[in-house]
Design a protein around this nucleic acid. Structure first.
Lengths: 146, 146
DNA sequence: TATTGTTATACTCTATAACTATA
DNA sequence: TATAGTTATAGAGTATAACAATA
C-alpha cells in the first residue's frame, strides 16, 4: 500500500492533537539540553512568578496530582533548584534558589524561542486568531482533580 | 495563594497542548462508551478506508510502533472486529468484520459529533482559520524533521 | 539485507488508596 | 472535616532489543 487514505485528517481534533504531539516532541528535545522536562520547567517558571506557592497549588495549576508533585519537587530540591520551607505546619512554600532562578531564565528563553518559531509560520493576524480560538476552546474544559 | 500567576498562559505552544489534552480527555470518555480507545477507533477507521492494509502500515500512519501494534490488533481480532489474513508469507492484511464495520461507523459518528462540538464554539470563519493554521503548523513541523 | 510480526521488557506518566499531621 | 504532603502501587502508553520467517 503506497499511499493509505487517512480519514482522520479532516477531523479538527485530530489536527490539534497532531500539532500538539509534534510540538511537544520538539520541546522535550530542547529542554533536555537544560536537564529539564517540560513539567519541571513549568514548575520552575510558576515558582518564579509566585514565590512561596505551595506544591499543591502548583499541581492544581499544572494539572499534576498532589501525589505526583511530591517526587517532582523532591527531585528539584535535591538538585538545589528549589527550596521547600514550611509556611505553616502542613504546607511547604516553594522558592527558587539562585541556580534555580538561572535555570528558569534559560528555560524561559528556550520556550520563548520555541514559541516564536511556531508563531513564525503564521501571519500576525493568524497568530492572533489562533490565540483567541485556543482561549475559547480552553474555556470549555472540565477539570477534574483529586 | 488565591490566584497564582501562570507565566505559561501567554505561550501559544502551551495553549495548544492544553486544548489538546482537554479534547483528548473528552474523546476518551466518549469513545469508552463504545468500548474503544482513541487509538483503537483510529485503527478501525483506517482499516475501513484501506481494506487489506498491513498493521505495520497502520502503525506508520498513526505513529504506533510495530511492537505495540501486535497486541493492539490481536485484541481487535479477539473481539472479532478485524480479521487478519496473510497477504504474503510475512504480512497480514487487515479487514473489518461486519461488527467491526458497524462499530467503526459508530466511532466515526462519535468523533464527528465531537468535532462538531469543537467547531460549534467557533464561528464558521474561525473554524476555517483554525484548519488552515493547523495545516500550516503541521507542515512546518514535518519539514523540521531530521 | 531489509521487512513483518512477535515477545519480552523497561521506562515514563498518570491515577487511586491510604496514611500522618495539621488547619 | 478538609487539606498538605507523602508513600506505595497499578495501569496506560511508549520505547528498544532480539528473534524467526520471509521478501
Amino acid at each position: 500500500m503506497t499511499n493509505p487514505t487517512n480519514p482522520l485528517d479532516r477531523l479538527i481534533g485530530y489536527q490539534i492533537r497532531r500539532a500538539s504531539v509534534a510540538m511537544m516532541a520538539r520541546l522535550v528535545r530542547d529542554l533536555s539540553e537544560l536537564g529539564l522536562t517540560p513539567t519541571e520547567a513549568s514548575v520552575l517558571l510558576l515558582v518564579e512568578a509566585n514565590p512561596g506557592i505551595t506544591q499543591s497549588e502548583v499541581g492544581r495549576v499544572l494539572n499534576v496530582k498532589r501525589a505526583n508533585m511530591a517526587p517532582l519537587t523532591a527531585a528539584l530540591d535535591r538538585r538545589s533548584l528549589v527550596q521547600r520551607r514550611p509556611v505553616d505546619g502542613r504546607s511547604h512554600g516553594l522558592e527558587l534558589t539562585p541556580s534555580g532562578a538561572a535555570l528558569a531564565a534559560e528555560a524561559l528563553r528556550s520556550m520563548e524561542t520555541h514559541d516564536a518559531s511556531i508563531a513564525a509560520s503564521l501571519s500576525g493576524e493568524r497568530e492572533r486568531d489562533l490565540r483567541l480560538i485556543l482561549a475559547d476552546l480552553w474555556e470549555s474544559e472540565v477539570e477534574r482533580r483529586d
